[in-house]
């Protein structure tokens, strides 16, 4: 199901008040192209406190079985803001110059 109006929706076909009648449509808006540095996590140091996961403004920290360890960051949605690195209590996340996640890093693209 599409979570937003089709691009040719007419004004009288849209819900008033600028509301989008569905939720969760931010997943369809990608900000990965904004990134000029990207997060790299040291999985040895990570204690799975999930601070990075909850603070990420773009839901770009992936999680599985209540663990972020060994999960990627979303290449489409990580905008490289560095909030995850700033909130990590163990300083396990480093912001590395360059927009591209590298295949040998635990941050390669993994889409939901």
């Amino acid at each position: 199901m599409s979570r937003h109006y089709p691009p040719d929706a007419k004004w009288h076909e849209m819900e008033r008040g600028g509301i989008i009648p569905q939720a969760g449509n931010a997943t369809e808006y990608t900000v990965g192209g904004w990134r000029n540095e990207h997060p790299v996590r040291d999985n040895e140091c990570c204690i799975d406190c999930l601070f990075c996961w909850i603070y990420c403004p773009d839901v770009a920290v992936h999680i599985k079985d209540e663990s972020v360890k060994y999960q990627g960051f979303s290449s489409d949605h990580c905008k490289g803001c560095g909030i995850c690195a700033a909130v990590c209590p163990k300083d396990c996340i480093e912001m590395v110059p360059g927009g591209e996640f590298q295949p040998d890093e635990p941050g390669q693209s993994e889409e939901e």
Binding site: P7, G18, I20
Partner: peptide, 19 residues
Amino acid sequence: PKTFGPLDLYDYYFEHKRS
């Protein structure tokens, strides 16, 4: 659940104002 007050650029803003 719905989305309230989203980013609304040149693609939909004009239609919302007309409405």
